[in-house]
Protein backbone atom coordinates (compact mmCIF):
# COMPACT_ATOMS: atom_id res chain seq x y z
CA UNK A 1 0.00 0.00 0.00
CA UNK A 2 1.63 3.30 -1.00
CA UNK A 3 1.19 6.53 0.97
CA UNK A 4 -1.58 7.74 -1.32
CA UNK A 5 -3.57 4.58 -0.72
CA UNK A 6 -2.87 4.72 3.01
CA UNK A 7 -4.19 8.28 3.23
CA UNK A 8 -7.24 7.39 1.18
CA UNK A 9 -8.01 4.42 3.44
CA UNK A 10 -7.35 6.42 6.61
CA UNK A 11 -9.92 8.96 5.49
CA UNK A 12 -12.37 6.07 5.30
CA UNK A 13 -11.33 5.09 8.82
CA UNK A 14 -9.89 1.73 7.78
CA UNK A 15 -7.90 0.33 10.70
CA UNK A 16 -5.79 -1.82 8.40
CA UNK A 17 -4.42 1.36 6.82
CA UNK A 18 -3.50 2.68 10.26
CA UNK A 19 -1.68 -0.54 11.04
CA UNK A 20 0.27 -0.27 7.77
CA UNK A 21 1.08 3.35 8.56
CA UNK A 22 2.44 2.41 11.97
CA UNK A 23 4.52 -0.41 10.50
CA UNK A 24 5.97 1.87 7.86
CA UNK A 25 6.69 4.93 9.94
CA UNK A 26 7.08 3.94 13.59
CA UNK A 27 10.89 3.78 13.29
CA UNK A 28 10.93 7.27 11.73
CA UNK A 29 8.51 8.74 14.27
CA UNK A 30 10.25 7.22 17.26
CA UNK A 31 13.61 8.45 15.92
CA UNK A 32 12.23 12.00 15.75
CA UNK A 33 10.94 11.66 19.32
CA UNK A 34 14.18 10.11 20.55
CA UNK A 35 16.29 12.89 18.99
CA UNK A 36 14.37 15.48 20.94
CA UNK A 37 13.97 13.50 24.16
CA UNK A 38 17.54 12.21 24.32
CA UNK A 39 17.94 10.08 27.41
CA UNK A 40 15.47 12.14 29.40
CA UNK A 41 12.49 9.95 28.60
CA UNK A 42 12.19 6.22 29.02
CA UNK A 43 11.71 3.87 26.09
CA UNK A 44 8.16 3.36 27.29
CA UNK A 45 7.54 7.14 27.12
CA UNK A 46 8.97 7.24 23.62
CA UNK A 47 6.64 4.44 22.54
CA UNK A 48 3.66 6.22 24.14
CA UNK A 49 4.47 9.49 22.39
CA UNK A 50 5.00 7.68 19.09
CA UNK A 51 1.62 5.98 19.52
CA UNK A 52 0.06 9.39 20.26
CA UNK A 53 1.36 10.64 16.92
CA UNK A 54 -0.49 7.93 15.04
CA UNK A 55 -3.65 8.47 17.07
CA UNK A 56 -3.58 12.14 16.09
CA UNK A 57 -3.12 11.18 12.43
CA UNK A 58 -6.07 8.80 12.76
CA UNK A 59 -8.29 11.48 14.29
CA UNK A 60 -7.30 14.12 11.74
CA UNK A 61 -7.23 11.90 8.68
CA UNK A 62 -9.55 14.29 6.86
CA UNK A 63 -6.79 16.89 6.78
CA UNK A 64 -4.09 14.59 5.41
CA UNK A 65 -2.43 14.88 2.04
CA UNK A 66 -0.37 11.96 0.81
CA UNK A 67 2.46 14.13 -0.51
CA UNK A 68 3.09 15.63 2.92
CA UNK A 69 2.38 12.61 5.11
CA UNK A 70 5.95 12.14 6.28
CA UNK A 71 6.41 15.83 7.08
CA UNK A 72 3.13 15.86 8.98
CA UNK A 73 4.18 12.85 11.04
CA UNK A 74 7.48 14.52 11.86
CA UNK A 75 5.80 17.80 12.82
CA UNK A 76 3.30 16.11 15.14
CA UNK A 77 6.06 13.96 16.69
CA UNK A 78 8.15 17.05 17.25
CA UNK A 79 5.35 19.00 18.89
CA UNK A 80 4.27 16.18 21.17
CA UNK A 81 7.85 15.52 22.29
CA UNK A 82 8.48 19.17 23.11
CA UNK A 83 5.18 19.39 24.97
CA UNK A 84 6.03 16.32 27.03
CA UNK A 85 9.44 17.66 27.98
CA UNK A 86 7.99 21.04 28.93
CA UNK A 87 5.35 19.43 31.11
CA UNK A 88 8.11 17.58 32.92
CA UNK A 89 10.02 20.88 33.31
CA UNK A 90 12.89 19.44 31.31
CA UNK A 91 15.04 22.07 29.61
CA UNK A 92 14.95 22.03 25.87
CA UNK A 93 17.33 24.05 23.72
CA UNK A 94 16.41 27.57 22.71
CA UNK A 95 18.23 29.86 20.34
CA UNK A 96 16.64 33.28 20.23
CA UNK A 97 16.78 36.24 17.93
CA UNK A 98 15.16 39.54 18.75
CA UNK A 99 12.35 40.93 16.61
CA UNK A 100 12.87 44.54 15.61
CA UNK A 101 10.41 46.14 18.01
CA UNK A 102 9.14 45.03 21.37
CA UNK A 103 5.41 44.77 20.78
CA UNK A 104 3.65 41.45 21.05
CA UNK A 105 2.91 39.82 17.77
CA UNK A 106 -0.82 40.38 17.99
CA UNK A 107 -1.40 40.58 14.27
CA UNK A 108 -2.49 37.54 12.45
CA UNK A 109 -0.88 39.09 9.41
CA UNK A 110 2.45 39.50 11.12
CA UNK A 111 2.56 35.94 12.42
CA UNK A 112 1.62 34.80 8.96
CA UNK A 113 4.23 37.02 7.38
CA UNK A 114 7.03 35.74 9.57
CA UNK A 115 6.13 32.14 8.72
CA UNK A 116 5.92 32.98 5.00
CA UNK A 117 9.13 34.99 5.04
CA UNK A 118 10.91 32.22 6.89
CA UNK A 119 9.74 29.53 4.47
CA UNK A 120 10.68 31.70 1.49
CA UNK A 121 14.17 32.25 2.90
CA UNK A 122 14.73 28.58 3.71
CA UNK A 123 13.53 27.47 0.27
CA UNK A 124 16.05 29.72 -1.42
CA UNK A 125 19.00 28.62 0.71
CA UNK A 126 21.62 26.28 -0.64
CA UNK A 127 20.69 22.66 -0.14
CA UNK A 128 23.50 21.95 2.32
CA UNK A 129 22.66 24.98 4.48
CA UNK A 130 18.98 24.09 4.46
CA UNK A 131 19.67 20.49 5.40
CA UNK A 132 21.99 21.34 8.24
CA UNK A 133 19.54 23.86 9.67
CA UNK A 134 16.63 21.42 9.44
CA UNK A 135 18.61 18.65 11.09
CA UNK A 136 19.58 20.95 13.97
CA UNK A 137 16.47 23.10 14.48
CA UNK A 138 13.71 20.82 13.26
CA UNK A 139 15.01 17.38 14.15
CA UNK A 140 17.07 18.63 17.17
CA UNK A 141 20.01 16.57 15.96
CA UNK A 142 23.33 17.31 17.63
CA UNK A 143 26.58 18.04 15.83
CA UNK A 144 28.08 14.53 16.03
CA UNK A 145 24.93 13.00 14.55
CA UNK A 146 24.62 15.61 11.81
CA UNK A 147 28.29 15.20 10.93
CA UNK A 148 27.92 11.44 10.69
CA UNK A 149 24.79 11.56 8.53
CA UNK A 150 26.09 14.33 6.28
CA UNK A 151 29.50 12.70 5.99
CA UNK A 152 31.58 15.56 7.33
CA UNK A 153 33.91 16.15 10.25
CA UNK A 154 32.42 17.53 13.44
CA UNK A 155 34.44 20.74 13.22
CA UNK A 156 33.38 21.27 9.60
CA UNK A 157 29.81 20.60 10.65
CA UNK A 158 29.98 23.11 13.49
CA UNK A 159 31.35 25.75 11.17
CA UNK A 160 28.78 25.00 8.49
CA UNK A 161 25.93 25.23 11.02
CA UNK A 162 27.25 28.51 12.38
CA UNK A 163 27.47 29.97 8.85
CA UNK A 164 24.03 28.70 7.85
CA UNK A 165 22.53 30.18 11.00
CA UNK A 166 24.15 33.53 10.35
CA UNK A 167 22.88 33.49 6.77
CA UNK A 168 19.35 32.84 8.04
CA UNK A 169 19.58 35.64 10.60
CA UNK A 170 20.98 38.00 7.98
CA UNK A 171 18.12 37.22 5.59
CA UNK A 172 15.54 37.71 8.33
CA UNK A 173 17.17 41.01 9.24
CA UNK A 174 17.06 42.16 5.62
CA UNK A 175 13.34 41.55 5.69
CA UNK A 176 12.96 43.60 8.87
CA UNK A 177 13.28 40.85 11.47
CA UNK A 178 16.07 39.67 13.68
CA UNK A 179 18.39 42.28 15.15
CA UNK A 180 21.62 40.64 16.19
CA UNK A 181 22.19 40.60 19.95
Amino acid sequence: MDDKKIVCQLKKKKEKALSVLVDRYSAYVSTVVRNIAGNRLTESDIEEISADVFIIIWRNADKLRSESLRSYLAAVARNLSIDRLRKLHITIPIDEIEIYDNTDIEFNAEQHDLADVFNAIIDKMEQRDREILLRHYFYYQKIPQIALEMNMSQSACKTALHRARNKLKKKLKERGYGNEN
Binding site: T31, I105, I122, E149
Partner: peptide, 22 residues
Protein backbone atom coordinates in the same frame (compact mmCIF):
# COMPACT_ATOMS: atom_id res chain seq x y z
CA UNK B 1 10.03 40.39 21.56
CA UNK B 2 12.14 37.37 20.85
CA UNK B 3 11.71 34.44 18.57
CA UNK B 4 13.20 31.07 19.27
CA UNK B 5 14.77 29.65 16.11
CA UNK B 6 13.63 26.19 17.16
CA UNK B 7 10.04 27.53 17.25
CA UNK B 8 10.32 29.17 13.83
CA UNK B 9 11.15 25.80 12.38
CA UNK B 10 7.75 24.57 13.59
CA UNK B 11 6.40 26.64 10.69
CA UNK B 12 8.57 24.91 8.11
CA UNK B 13 6.43 23.61 5.27
CA UNK B 14 8.93 22.07 2.86
CA UNK B 15 10.53 18.67 2.48
CA UNK B 16 12.58 17.21 5.29
CA UNK B 17 15.91 15.47 4.90
CA UNK B 18 16.05 11.72 5.45
CA UNK B 19 17.48 10.73 8.80
CA UNK B 20 18.95 7.46 9.98
CA UNK B 21 16.19 5.60 11.70
CA UNK B 22 16.79 3.72 14.90
Amino acid sequence: MKINLYDIFSDYKGDLPDISEE
